[in-house]
């Protein structure tokens, strides 16, 4: 598997005596994965990403990005990033802004047209940045992040300000960018987004990572809800089928620890025993429920 692409150890950022923006974060991001950094407003996402890019210094703890300390020219050369909102020169056209960025990055000029094409901005590339809509500014920001054809892409809420169609395009784009060797670190407060795009998710709240895993792991196993009459007999049969530890009763329903494949079998068993089944359905916890639960405890 090799060395992780990003590794942080107890990364901490304090502002003054009272604000702990990032609190002992340990992250390990591996080559090739699309990692979602999920957290509510003010959780410390942007602060963490700024530290990874060397824009701000950690108060304590350490980080390495592509084997170098944050902000090292060797690692910056291989990282494309968009932090918070896209920042460009208002008096320059979109294309000229990319020319400036390409010169800083030492990237050949022909790459500019390629990235304009990728974010679908070619037709407006001659217009001044100050005349761009929010969504166009965001797309230019992503184009600039792609100039270096980076091994690691760090995107801080890249769908911010986009309309539904724009969001969906952007997610598709990020998914495609994340195919193969390229690693993407994406921050978001949108669960659906992370769910669609990411391989692995770290949940940050109040500056600390409170949970980490694949979307499936975070969500946990689903369950099967059954409404039946009489309920106690239904329970007996369900326990016979699945074992007592996988059956519980709540709100006048049975909650069975089982997945979609088991639904038909459970139904047949109950009906054969002349139990009246008025409802049987799959209950998957949404990431949102999980998230709200976790961040309530954490915050």
């Amino acid at each position: 598997m090799g060395k992780p692409l990003i590794e942080t150890k107890n990364l901490t950022k304090r502002y003054g005596a009272s604000i702990v923006a990032v609190d002992g974060v340990n992250l390990t991001i591996r080559r090739g994965e699309v990692y979602g950094f999920l957290g509510p407003n003010g959780a410390g996402k942007t602060t963490t990403l700024r530290m990874l890019l060397g824009l701000i210094r950690a108060t304590s703890g350490s980080a390495s990005v592509l084997g170098h300390p944050p902000g090292h020219p060797e690692s910056l050369a291989r990282v494309g990033s968009l932090i918070e909102s896209p920042a460009f020169y208002p008096y320059l056209s979109g294309r000229d802004n990319l020319r400036v960025v390409a010169r800083y990055a030492g990237v050949p000029k022909k790459r500019i047209e390629e990235v304009l094409g990728i974010v679908d901005l070619t037709s407006r590339a001659r217009d001044k940045f100050s005349t761009y809509s929010l969504g166009m500014k965001q797309r230019l920001g992503v184009a600039a992040a792609l100039l270096k054809d980076p091994e690691l892409l760090i995107l801080d809420e890249p769908t911010n300000g986009l309309d539904p169609a724009g969001m969906s395009d952007m997610r598709e784009l990020i998914k495609n960018l994340g195919r193969g060797e390229r690693t993407v670190l994406l921050s978001s407060h949108l669960l659906g987004e992370v769910e669609q795009i990411c391989d692995r998710v770290g949940v940050i709240s109040g500056g600390a990572v409170i949970s980490e895993g694949t979307v499936g792991e975070l969500r946990g196993r689903g369950s099967v809800l059954v409404k039946a009459n009489p309920l106690d007999r239904a329970r007996e049969h369900a326990e016979k089928l699945l074992g007592p530890e996988r059956v519980e009763e709540s709100d006048g329903m049975l909650r069975l620890d089982a997945d979609a494949a088991a639904v038909a079998g459970i139904n047949r068993e109950l009906v054969n025993a002349s139990i009246e089944v008025s409802e049987i359905r799959l209950a998957e916890r949404t990431l949102e429920e999980v998230f709200l639960e976790m961040t309530k405890q954490g915050g």
Binding site: L53, G71, H72, P73, L76, A87, F88, V101, A105, K148
Partner: peptide, 18 residues
Amino acid sequence: GWGTLKTSLTQKPGRMAL
């Protein structure tokens, strides 16, 4: 004012080269 320093500083050159 424009926040463009973060754009230039996250390209390649170190701060002093920039």
